[in-house]
């Protein structure tokens, strides 16, 4: 295997195969995230959720996908035709690109990754900021006031919360001393008799709270789903989208949700380490728990007003993030010299 990897052509073969597998796995995971969300939201409202198509409604997403794929692909006359079609493609591309640098532990000493680069987490942020273009261009190209409002909101919201999102992780980087995701996951401590991996949430709990809040805002999920806001903006940037292009936005939203959950697991919950549990199962378990947290938030909180959103971002999360960085720095200097 390592010989194959060292060979230039073999390397590319491995990477392409890994990418295909990843694409399939993430798509499937997305479908079942949607199913999970619909069932969990249903339970929160004491409904059963989808339960007609296939056992436990597990094939519901296949049915929905086929239905959307066969819908007429409408591009309204007065839109910017090129941007209108390109925008959802950007959304999907940006969503999938982040997965290039996310490593997953498959078995006790087998780890999978496509690109193990030393600025991994920064790359994820770079790709996730592309989402702004997808939503804003979609809203602008639609030539519709609701879409444009949604797009504007998305641009302001994503840019504001990206700052907090970045700051929330700085203490983690300071503690670990690396931006490489595998290093962060494999961070070990030697505290007296204990020597081994530790979930970083124990060291930066405030960082996790900021990260979680900012991540919900970054992925445009309730209660920060102002760009869509069905009630006020009749779908916001999605208003003019139907069929496959709508599905692409939808897919991107859920892929982003999984990405953010997976990142939280890698950054704060020790990745795929969980006692004796096989790593891939441990990873899956933690991601599902975080996804449930997402859904739980959506099922509980009403949407924030726009000024509240901005106030929370700039006046609460940002100062908190800065203080968190400073305090972590002081403690690190005090303990490690």
């Amino acid at each position: 295997m390592s010989d194959l990897y060292a060979n230039a052509i073999g390397h590319w073969v491995v990477v392409v195969v890994a990418m295909l597998i990843l694409f399939f796995v993430v798509l499937t995971a997305t479908a079942y995230t949607v199913w999970f969300e619909r069932v969990a939201l249903g339970r929160i409202q004491r409904r059963p959720g989808p339960n007609r198509v296939g056992p436990f409604g597990l094939l519901q997403l296949a049915a929905d996908g086929i239905k959307a794929a066969f819908k007429e692909s409408i591009v309204p006359t007065k839109t910017e035709h090129v941007l209108f079609v390109v925008a959802p493609c950007i959304a999907v591309a940006a969503a999938f690109l982040s997965w290039a640098v996310i490593p997953i532990g498959l078995w006790y000493n087998v780890t999978y990754w496509i690109a193990d680069i030393n600025i991994g987490i920064l790359l994820v942020f770079a790709f996730s900021s592309l989402n702004v273009y997808a939503i804003f261009l979609g809203g602008y190209a639609s030539n519709n006031k609701y879409s444009l409002l949604g797009g504007m909101r998305a641009a302001a919201q994503l840019i504001s919360y990206e700052v907090a999102l970045g700051l929330s992780l700085v203490p983690t980087f300071m503690i670990v001393g690396s931006l490489r995701l595998r290093d962060i996951v494999g961070y070990t401590v030697s505290w007296g008799p204990y020597h081994g991996p530790i979930p970083l949430i124990l060291l930066t709990p405030i960082g996790f709270v900021i990260y979680l809040t900012a991540a919900v805002a970054e992925t445009n999920r309730a209660p920060f789903d102002l760009p869509e806001a069905e009630q006020e903006l009749i779908g916001g940037f999605l208003t003019e989208y139907t069929g496959l292009k709508f599905i692409m936005y939808y897919l991107a939203e859920y892929v982003n949700m999984i990405t953010v959950s997976a990142l939280a697991v890698l950054l704060f919950f020790g990745g795929w380490y969980l006692w004796f549990v096989p790593p891939v199962l441990a990873f899956l378990f933690k991601v599902v728990l975080l996804l449930f947290l997402y859904i739980w938030l959506r099922g509980t909180f009403p949407r924030l007003r726009y000024d509240m959103l901005m106030r929370l971002g700039w006046k609460v999360l940002l100062p908190l993030g800065i203080v968190n960085v400073i305090v972590t720095g002081v403690i690190l200097v005090a303990t490690q010299g």
């Binding site: 969990a40 249903g42 339970r43 929160i44 409202q45 004491r46 409904r47 059963p48 739980w296 938030l297 099922g299 509980t300 909180f301």
Partner: peptide, 15 residues
Amino acid sequence: GLKTTLGEFFSPVVT
């Protein structure tokens, strides 16, 4: 709020 919704989550479905 979170406690309330979690309680509902574990309550039986009424459909």
